[in-house]
Design a binder for these strands. Structure first.
Length: 563
RNA sequence: GCGCCUGUAGCUCAGUCGGAUAGAGCACUCGCCUUCUAAGCGAGUUGUCGCAGGUUCGAUUCCUGCCAGGCGCGCCA
């Protein structure tokens, strides 16, 4: 990290050094417990500098000193610090004891230089280096098309994978196929009934897609109708499964969401793997028998009731799969298992965490469960109701047909997953500020146009044309400040598992760029002579395009060069 | 009954290791294209941050209680 240490990191380390020096010199009490790190914040008000910290305020009580006095001591050592000497232009004390730090032009220039140098890796970090993450999302039954609820996870899960990767983690995306149990049997029975032209079972699967699937199966396997009932049920089930799974895979690929592993629930029971899991849990002392069933004592770890794994009739409860699946993930070498579940599954959080604890793991580290709220969709001002019965479910594919992959992905990602959201199809089709994906993409396309023109005019730009001393306009300062924020935003998004932060940042950056563009002419006007300022501004544009493109890449959204 | 999530501008929502006058888009009014993409920019108006306490130098943010809405609590999957 040393070579890529950002200005803000350098400053916060310098503040730590200043505090240590102050303690050594006796200006701060010797017993004072110093913070392990200093987090700088970006003041909303530009008069408060580029960075600010309130350490002096928080140390005041323990030190028994006036916060402004502490700030004064820090300021003195900070100004003398050789490392940041050239990049910081001023350290001011404001209000009750805030330290406001302003960057020198040279410091701003180094930000642009590192963006151009690191290119598509700018902003990436190593907070999760060496950590192996299993990211499981969607995990739909292979008994029908992916619908709107799955779509949110497809977009957010994929973006989270990109964000975690950018933070240095080794990420494996996994789709858990619920291919065993009653639902599969009902699916087979529904297909068979449809194929035979008899009523589908009451609790079976309905909808036009069932008829189409049935038709397609008979088309390639007319003999299925003449098998015995038992044989034909499983034949229809397996054929339907294969078709539906292939369909889900195709739709997801078109949605730019790719999985490394498609994990079959059935496979958990192959080769006595489940027995092995049970033995492992038993050896940890959390398995017991009662009423003819085999249980996991999840109440040892905060669950509100114990869970049955093997029912008294000898069949496996769904929880058996959950337990074995978790153990499988850990035995395959994953340090952190992330689960993305719908709000209707939030009751599972405790029991999943309890599985980890029962297996002897640390539930606060090895397992991370994210709960997402539901999505509603609006068209022509009316909510499209989702009903499988009525056959009016909105599929992922239909949504993409309506608004396109970029708009669908972007909109689903830009909200925190724990808030319910409404997608308005009409807005997503619009080309205005209401539609943030265009706002961001437009900024990128606009910059590309400017750079094309710069090249035509023979204006040089790039790492040798930064000229930070010429960038003194307030808009330029703002823009550089925003570019410098990207690594922190990305790190936060990874740590909190919140990719929406990247989208919000991209919107803010795009807005700052548009304002810069309105106020700062980049290229020479008419027959005006080209100067270094033109090159410097074009270079700033170049760096901005880079950061916007990097942000969009993390969301799986395209960064067009022309619109 | 127990548990989880949510409650911020007229609308849709940002804002988490507590910070300096609480933000954006939409909507409404008015400006800005004979020169870099107007899918853009600028100006104006809008708030008991659900309510009540507590911790703190300082709370939209943390804690407790309450109110309102959504969801979940099977030897179903």
């Amino acid at each position: 990290m040393n070579s890529q240490e950002s200005i803000s990191d350098q400053v916060s380390l310098a503040i730590l050094r200043a505090l240590a020096q102050a303690v050594t010199s006796g200006e701060l009490p010797s017993g004072l417990v110093l913070p392990s790190e200093i987090t700088l914040e970006r003041p909303k008000n530009r008069d408060h500098g580029d960075y600010a910290t309130s350490v002096a305020l928080s140390l005041s009580k323990a030190a028994g000193l006036n916060p402004r006095a502490i700030a004064e001591v820090i300021r003195t050592y900070l100004m003398a610090d050789p490392v940041i000497n050239g990049s910081v232009s001023a350290v001011d004390i404001a209000g009750p004891g805030f330290l406001n730090i302003s960057l020198a032009r040279a410091g701003q220039g180094s930000i642009i230089a590192s963006i151009l140098k690191e290119a598509d890796r700018y902003g990436h970090g190593n907070a999760l280096a060496g950590v192996s993450v299993n990211l499981e999302f969607i995990s739909a039954n292979p008994t029908g098309p992916l619908h709107l609820g799955h779509t949110r996870w497809a977009a957010v899960g994929d973006a989270l994978g990109r964000v975690l990767t950018a933070a240095g983690a080794k990420v494996t995306r996994e789709f858990y196929i619920n291919d065993r149990g009653n639902q599969m049997e009902l699916f087979g029975a529904s297909l068979r009934a449809a194929a035979m032209g008899v009523p589908v079972p009451e609790d079976g699967y309905h909808g036009e897609y069932i008829n189409e699937l049935a038709k397609s199966i008979i088309g390639s396997h007319p003999d299925y109708l003449h098998l015995s009932e038992v044989e034909s049920l499983s034949a229809f089930r397996d054929a339907g499964y294969a078709l539906q799974l292939a369909d889900q895979q195709r739709v997801l690929q078109d949605f730019r969401t790719n999985f490394d592993i498609w994990f079959s629930e059935r496979s958990l029971y192959d080769n006595d793997f489940f027995k092995h899991c049970l033995d492992r849990l038993r050896s940890q002392g959390h398995v017991f028998e009662e009423g003819g069933a085999t249980w996991l004592r999840t109440t040892d770890f905060g669950d509100d009731k114990d869970r049955v794994m093997i029912k008294s009739d000898g069949s496996f409860a769904y929880f058996a799969s959950d337990s074995a699946y978790y153990i499988s993930k850990r035995e395959r070498g994953f340090d952190i298992c992330i689960y993305m579940l719908g709000a209707d599954h939030h009751g599972y959080v405790n029991r999943l965490k309890a599985i980890a604890a029962c297996a002897g793991d640390d539930p606060s580290y090895n397992i991370d469960v994210l709960i997402g709220q539901l999505v509603k969709i609006l068209e022509n001002g009316e909510e499209l109701k989702l009903s499988k019965r009525a056959g009016t479910i909105i599929t992922l594919e239909e949504l993409v047909e309506k608004v396109g992959v970029d708009a669908a992905r972007y909109t689903l990602i830009r909200y925190p997953v724990d808030t319910p959201m409404v997608m308005d199809v009409d807005v997503l089709r619009s080309r205005t500020n209401e539609n943030p994906v265009y706002y961001v993409q437009y900024a990128h396309a606009r910059i590309c146009a400017v750079l094309r023109n710069a090249t035509d005019l023979g204006i040089a730009y790039g790492i040798d044309e930064i000229h930070p001393e010429l960038l003194e306009h307030e808009r330029e300062r703002e823009l550089i400040g925003a570019l410098a924020e990207f690594p922190r935003v990305l790190a936060g998004a990874a740590e909190l598992r919140e990719p929406h932060r990247v989208a919000r940042y991209a919107e803010e950056l795009a807005g700052i760029y548009h304002r810069f563009y309105a106020d700062c002419r980049v290229l020479p006007l008419g027959d005006e002579k080209a100067t270094q300022l033109h090159s410097a501004r074009a270079t700033l544009c170049n760096a901005t395009a880079r950061v916007i493109a990097n942000s969009l890449a993390l969301l799986g959204v395209s960064a067009p060069e022309k619109m």
